[in-house]
Design a binder for these strands. Structure first.
Lengths: 220, 220, 220, 220
DNA sequence: GATGAATGAGCGTTCATTCAT
DNA sequence: AATGAATGAACGCTCATTCAT
């Protein structure tokens, strides 16, 4: 009888190994955690659920990421790297107006490709929780790029200073992805379909043009 | 916890009763829940903490609000009413430009006075969770007012449709209150001081003017 | 079907209540914890086992005693009180020799009646762990009584100082209860039977007399 | 834990290997286990901690000692051998009184040199646990030597039988090492300093003389 | 209205142990 | 000989909730 059990066990493990060869357990944990943290927040996500989604033993999460907070950090960290890579591509050559359009285009693409990231920091930033330092680290990089780009056209202080435009432009971009789903029912069509995204892109460009026009006229 | 000294307890209760006459236990529960849900999110808040902050017996929360979800709904509901009252005041008479400025001023004031509300829906909207229906109900009212106001100057569809401006304008307002605190350290000064708020107000008005200018020129 | 479940539950609770009327749950928890901590030590005892032995819900232990350490403290505290009461009776009137015999008799009785206590502190004193402060508090009282009693006949310092006699006499008493059981198999008869205890008492008195004889002769 | 930097790891391993050549991993495991079991007891010690202290892979403990109980046995066994060797030296030639003094001197030295052993059996003997058989084996040897030595001067049964003197004398010796640390704060000075130990030795000799005096007088 | 006792499910985490390499 | 991945049971503890009073 015990022989049977062992046999079955071995088989199970083999099967699983085959299926998992491509990815590795720790990566699968990270992926599952990412999805769940994003959907349910830090407190709302249980390691058991992560383990179940990743088809992995509960203890293995601790083995790889020490504890729940470590897992969360690992998820954020992974985005931080993606974020950094994206930022590197945001700064372009050319005249100001083109550069800003390009930058917002790039940022829109990044957020669109990493929607979970947007939702994640939205949640954590709203609750000024224990993870803020990590979040802040992530935001700072973005701010510096945007502020650097806009800096030459704006006063350092006051209502037209870079920090206000940073919040306005990033809010305009991010909030589309975080709010739109909640309003989807209200609008009928999906806000993240290809056409809808293109339309939002157009809107953003239009707004940016409007702002730059005004800035130019003010300067004159 | 079991009683330690009955005498002390009785005294405590008297004191508490006196202090609380004006407010009522259920209101105190709501207030404590509001603060905690906002700071820690739904899952991160425990009824035990709510009870402690409200200086109320744990069972009483259940008595008044049935369960945790009921308490959360009650908190949102309360804002829904405040929101409704605020919306009523948003629509003004007069020429379009003034009306829009007035509306955004009103909205900014409302969010500024109900920062917790902003953080609360920001959290819940990001996690597309069980409470979305209630959130949606709250958002819809706002959307309709804003869309109604802007409707006359905008095309019904496309990148300049009201829904885009709704997201842009509300995102510009809300994200200041939710993101700015996370960047406070980066900027030095408090983003919610009186002067800082006035500055943000100015920024918003400047942006609105820029957008309306462009719209007018496009129309011409 | 659900009716059945409810019915059974109610019945269960009633039954239990009847059986427990006399004692109270928290007392039963304490009793079970006492037995288990003594037998398996602090680390070797699980709250689940305590709950099972006390026929009580796991969570109730936490409800009454906060956490495992609190439960352990409660067990020790209870003995501390018993200990204090016993100490009060140890100091007698009369000539020195009688007083010392009476004191050791009283201490032997106390330990005999609270064998778990002896084993408990024996364990905790050997591992210089987190609970030493509590243990120390318990020991200090005893030391002071014994040292006070012996003080008049002994030099304050050196190999005949009270502290050495304290350790010798208490060790002689306690070690019987802790070590003898381990040697029971070697000796055949039970070391805690009535006759065996009387014999040990006699031995102790004989030793004390021998020591006092020597002290007197030394003094002469 | 998964590797962080392979390079660093390899280096670490080399360093460790060099440092450990003289000792061998299994010996280092035993040493670490000894210290931890003594300080925290069997249940309070985790193999993880042993592995960490021994700077050894967790699995290696299992490889050498099968499981936790096996490791514990190995620790006790080691003392059993040391104990046996010490016992061999306890029995001396010469008149009774000298022989007994010499025996207690030897035993005191042995315990003083193997304090952990004393604490270990104290813990395990107090909790009449799963390891009693091994403990008993260790105690039996000692008992037989002591009883053999005292046998000629004592009645086989009753309050003056060897078993009582065995417990009294060994308790007097052991309890100094196990209790004294707990009373250290009470006494001010360290109980295991060289002078303090010499003083305790004197005390024990004084007691033994008193007992033998009394025995001689009783016999006369 | 209001309380405190009580429950059971589930939490994050630790643990001894297994096993392939 | 030695390692690190992996497991499953159990741990102390928190939780929302129920219920009698």
């Amino acid at each position: 009888m015990p022989a049977k059990t062992t046999a079955r066990k071995t088989k199970d493990r083999k099967e699983r190994k085959d299926r998992n060869k491509d990815e590795g357990r720790s990566a699968r944990i990270l992926e599952a955690a990412d999805a769940l943290f994003c959907e349910r927040g830090f407190a709302g996500t249980s390691l058991r659920d992560v383990a179940k989604d990743a088809e992995v033993n509960k203890g293995l999460i601790v083995y790889y990421y020490q504890n729940k907070a470590g897992l969360f950090s690992a998820v954020l960290e992974r985005y931080y790297e993606a974020h950094g890579a994206a930022l590197a591509g945001l700064s372009q050559e050319g005249p100001l107006r083109e550069r800003i359009h390009a930058m917002l285009d790039g940022y829109f693409s990044f957020i669109g490709d990493n929607r979970r990231y947007a939702r994640l920091i939205q949640q954590e930033v709203a609750r000024s929780g224990e993870h803020l330092p990590l979040i802040r680290k992530n935001l700072r990089g973005l701010f510096e790029v945007v502020a650097g780009e806009l800096g030459e056209a704006l006063p350092a202080e006051g209502p037209l200073s870079p920090k206000h435009f940073f919040l306005t432009l990033s809010g305009m971009t991010i909030s589309y992805f975080t709010y739109a789903p909640a309003l989807k029912a209200l609008w009928g069509s999906s806000p993240v379909g290809e056409l809808a995204l293109a339309e939002r892109r157009e809107h953003i460009h239009w707004v940016v043009d409007a702002l730059l026009d005004r800035l130019e006229r003010d300067a004159a």
